[in-house]
Write a protein that binds this DNA or RNA. Structure first.
Length: 820
RNA sequence: GCCGAAGUGGCGGAAUGGCAGACGCGGCGGUCUCAAAAACCGUUGAGGGCAACCUCGUGCGGGUUCGAAUCCCGCCUUCGGCACCA
């Protein structure tokens, strides 16, 4: 019996040795092909939980596998260190965010090292350090130069709990993505990145190997729609026109009113004096409403008439102009033509206010019969499908698709409108009224307005002595030493911008920085980036589909157009790992008390066992509950592997190879093929199942196979498990007599001629039901196999002299004899 | 409401047109032990049968096929995304 495996001691020892020998230091050039393996970097919360392990440890196993396959692998680690949680923690505990963050990073470095990953710690980054965030500022200035950053007054999403504005992407169903508070809107001057300029390019995901649901989410988020934008003259106001956007210009003859968003710039101008008070009240009410209230489809449709009419350019009819909060100021032109018969929202609104509902589209199936003469009152809801036009002048009888084109062309020829594409995506609001972030490098001068901080004055340091409690104003506002400065243009007193940047700016380009994080005169090292980028495999949660992943793609495209890089996508392959739930099947949270701390398990059964167990739980994109009992299966497997290797061949085993050797050799090669295939396809659960099957089959053969083969089998198993259980594999490799690290070895290959069995089991069916099985030589011909099948007594019994109508033969698998 | 994914033993799951339940957990029985733990061996979908074996069985209902967990149609449930985007 071999000595017991002492995981904690072995793991500590090898981690120290790997660090000492610099085993995982990565050079920026190699004869080997490069492979950049990246996980979404963690927020320094101070506690590495089992979910981090699920993400990081498994990603590391895959990266180790790639390294053994001959790639030069870059696997960096760092911290997404700015952001609200540090401020919250700092406020709650009275510690400065900087200290809290740096302490958390220190703790997490220790915990991360317990994973046993190949991180090259020389490349570590922390985004809250000036050496990093100065490049956020530098990139901001570049974006400004290219008109990709701009300042505008807009009704920004406001989170009352976080006391800051948010980007649209950070609002989930009307609630703050971070703290789940119902958000409101505030009219503020804010900085934006012009991501909408890249809407079309971002829709192109060809060449990306990403989960389809992520690309679908991005496509839906960008929301491209084709339509017509046209202008309506306003009665008695030849100086004003109302622009509207519609995707259903085929229904334009059904327009019975026009709606402006409450915040539409023309509202004041167009409102008649008698309506002024009501209109202003409504505007105020709409401004105060939370997103939840505004977005609720259950809600009664409200609005106020301005007391003025516009002219429908299609038929010259007068239609009243209203404001209503179901029209958004931020989409299209902020105004719509309302066609209540063919739009459900307009329909409900028209019913509420007794406005005319005029049907102009007949369902296509009814087109043969005369147009229905039904009164509007009979309609229960809008008919929103396509159909055939009626009451539409010379367009009557056209189907919707043809009419969309015909009417668009007509409008274009009249000069009242043109075809237009609109996108749902909004520009990215990056201003945050919080302390713990990158200061936006802008100075406001009375004479010169918003002046960029000159490059040579970067970084604009975040002052350490600031009051950071959120008040709704940016904390930096209260720091005179920070705020008061001089204008870079004229030298007169000026004020600094006091908002900080959204932390998604930091994570939009960090993958470039990892390539050479020590470069001092540029955000990234062009040569190193040229070598390593794009990221070959990116692993992280799906929750970033329309935030980080979209922003990073935008950044890379913008940087490419600036000539700073020469590729257009940051992440070639993307994998979304699932979420590990608590043992109760619920999402882990401190308040539920179901958070699993990996440290206890690492101490007890070893990091290798935790890694393997997480891989074994199920498909990697599935996640699932942490079942503390299940880990014993992996423990047992690893112990049996340990014993198998250390016990060595049976003392009475044959010296020369016999028939058992042939079977075992085939099994070794077949398993190698399965493990290789599963590793490539991220199927870690079946990869480990294959190794378990192998060891289960191997153990009873110990006395039967030759000593040499037993040793070969041991070595092969150690190599196959090395990416998944790197510490034990290293220990076993050395115990087998090797002096170099197992992690410098190549992945074992397999001989295609050995992965198929010489004997195969053929299933014999009668009318699709299994009745017998026979063992035949794999290369036996169809006729012989069928003969053997018909010779089977069991088959004969079921055939019972019935005439055979058909025989299905699947080579090496089955024979199905059909009699009916 | 719209879009998407998924439903398989007590549990995690495997099998993507060809032996349903690989592998593991848990359970049951056994070996060892004074005993327990650990380790090891056997067994474990349901029903029937002394047994060899037989029948049923992958959310529900239909279909295609020699053959369906797998493909098609309809429904139910769960999860995820979007949700006034004109």
């Amino acid at each position: 019996m071999a000595e017991k495996y002492r995981a904690a001691e072995v793991e500590r020892r090898w981690q120290a040795e790997w660090e000492r020998s610099g085993l995982y230091k990565v050079a920026d050039q190699s004869d080997r092909p490069k492979y950049y393996s990246l996980v979404m970097f963690p927020y320094p919360s101070g506690d590495l939980h089992i979910g981090h392990w699920y993400n990081f440890a498994i990603a590391d196993s895959h990266a180790r596998y790639k390294r053994m396959r001959g790639f030069q692998v870059l696997e960096p680690m760092g911290f997404d260190a700015f952001g609200l949680p540090a401020e919250e923690a700092a406020i709650n505990r009275g510690i400065h965010p900087f200290r809290w963050t740096m302490d958390s990073i220190k703790r997490m470095e220790v915990q991360l090292k317990a994973i046993g990953a190949m991180y090259d710690w020389d490349r570590e980054i922390a985004t809250c350090l000036p050496e990093y965030y100065r490049w956020n500022q530098w990139l901001f200035l570049k974006f400004l130069e290219k008109d990709l950053a701009y300042r505008a007054q807009a009704p920004a999403v406001w989170c009352p709990h976080c006391q800051t504005t948010l980007a649209n992407e950070q609002v989930v169903a009307g609630r703050c993505e971070r703290c789940d508070t119902v958000v409101t809107r505030r009219l503020l001057e804010q900085w934006f990145f012009r991501i909408t300029a890249y809407a079309e390019e971002l829709l192109d995901v060809s060449g990306l190997d990403w989960p389809e649901r992520v690309t679908t989410m991005q496509r839906n988020w960008i929301g491209k729609s084709y339509g017509v934008e046209f202008r309506l003259p306003v009665e008695k106001r030849p100086d004003v026109e109302i622009s509207v956007f519609t995707t259903r210009v085929d229904t334009v003859f059904g327009m019975t009113y026009v709606v402006l968003a409450p915040e539409h710039p023309l509202v004041d101008e167009l409102t008649v004096p008698a309506q002024r008070e009501q209109v202003q009240q409504y505007q105020e009410q709409a401004r105060r409403a939370t997103e939840i209230e505004r977005l609720s489809t259950e809600r009664e449709r409200t609005g106020v008439a301005l007391g003025i009419s516009a002219i429908n350019p299609a038929n010259g009819e007068r239609v009243p102009v209203w404001i209503a909060d179901y029209v958004l100021g931020s989409y299209g032109t902020g105004a719509i033509m309302a066609v209540p018969a063919h739009d459900q929202r307009d329909f409900e609104f028209a019913q509420n206010f007794g406005l005319e509902i005029r049907e102009v589209i007949a369902p296509a199936s009814l087109s043969a019969s005369p147009p229905p003469t039904s009164e509007a009152a009979e309609l229960r809801q809008a008919y929103v499908e396509l159909g055939v036009l009626m009451r539409s002048g010379r367009f009557d009888g056209l189907d919707s698709d043809a009419a969309k084109i015909a009417i668009a062309e007509w409008f274009e020829s009249l000069g009242v409108g043109e075809r237009k594409i609109n996108y749902r995506v909004r520009d990215w609001l990056i201003s945050r009224q919080r302390y713990w972030g990158t200061p936006i490098p802008i100075i406001y001068c009375e004479e010169h307005g918003a002046v960029p901080v000159p490059e040579d004055q970067l970084p604009v340091l975040l002052p350490e002595d600031a009051e950071f409690r959120p008040t709704g104003q940016s904390p930096l506002t209260y720091n005179p030493a920070f705020v008061n400065t001089t204008c870079p243009r004229c030298g007169r007193p000026a004020r600094r911008e006091t908002d900080t940047m959204d932390t998604f700016v930091d994570s939009s380009w960090y993958m470039l920085r990892y390539c050479n994080p020590h470069i001092e005169d540029a955000p990234f090292d062009r040569a190193a980036v040229q070598y390593w980028m794009p990221v070959d495999q990116y692993i992280g949660g799906v929750e970033h589909a329309t935030m980080h992943l979209l922003y990073a793609r935008f950044f890379i495209k913008a940087l490419r157009n600036m000539g700073l890089i020469d590729f257009g996508e940051p992440f070639k392959h993307l994998f979304n790992q699932g979420i590990i739930l608590g043992p109760d099947g619920q999402k882990m949270s401190k308040s539920r008390g179901n958070v699993v701390n990996p440290d206890d398990y690492v101490q007890r059964v070893g990091g290798d066992a935790v890694r393997c167990y997480l891989m074994f739980i199920g498909p990697y994109d599935g996640g699932g509950p942490w079942n503390p009992q299940g880990i014993s299966g992996i423990e047992g497997f690893l112990h049996r592997l340990w014993n198998l290797v250390l016990d060595g061949p049976d003392p009475n085993a044959p010296q020369t190879s016999g028939p058992a050797d042939d079977r075992v050799l085939r099994l070794l090669h077949k398993t190698t093929q399965r493990v290789t295939d599963d590793m490539e396809r991220f199927r870690f659960n079946t990869m480990l199942a294959a190794l378990m099957e192998l060891i289960n089959a191997l153990l009873p053969q110990r006395a039967k196979v030759s000593k040499q083969l037993w040793r070969d089998a041991s070595e092969r198993m150690v190599l196959l498990i090395a990416p998944s259980a790197p510490h034990m594999a290293e220990e076993l490799w050395h115990r087998l007599g090797h002096t170099e690290s197992v992690h410098l070895e190549s992945w074992p290959g397999f001989d295609p001629s050995l992965v198929t069995d010489s004997q195969v089991t053929v299933v014999l069916q009668v009318n699709g039901k299994v009745r017998d099985k026979i063992e035949v030589a794999a290369d036996l011909g169809q006729e012989q196999v069928q003969e053997l099948a018909l010779a089977s007594a069991k088959v004969q019994a079921y055939l019972d002299h019935s005439p055979i109508r058909q025989v299905i033969y699947v080579p090496g698998r089955l024979v199905n004899i059909v009699t009916i």
